[in-house]
Amino acid sequence: MSNKPVPRVRVPANAKKDELIEIKTLISHEMESGQRRDSAGKVIPRRIINTFTAEFDGKTVFEATWHPAISANPYQSFFYKAVKSGEFTFKWKDDDGSVYESKAKIQVA
């Protein structure tokens, strides 16, 4: 991995109570599948982000388990029903044990 993965998230800053909002996330990562070979014919070892987790005020609301078929710079979107104001924490777990994190607040009126 040449660069540290950088997460980017799209969460509406404001929502009406009970509004269904779409949350979109991206993170820069090569997602090396473990299926490719280098020029010498050696298998390039797998290294992917294997889990994406979205928490709201500390409680998990959505989780995705990614396999090597997931594209580089993985994208994940999902929905959330806005009930109250609070903070999302998004976590990406790398095969190498690293965890990348991003937070976003939402105001519910």
Partner: peptide
Amino acid sequence: VVSFAFTPACGKAAASSR
């Protein structure tokens, strides 16, 4: 390819990946 774990908090059981 991928597995999604939803909760009632999602409000809608839909998700997108690539």
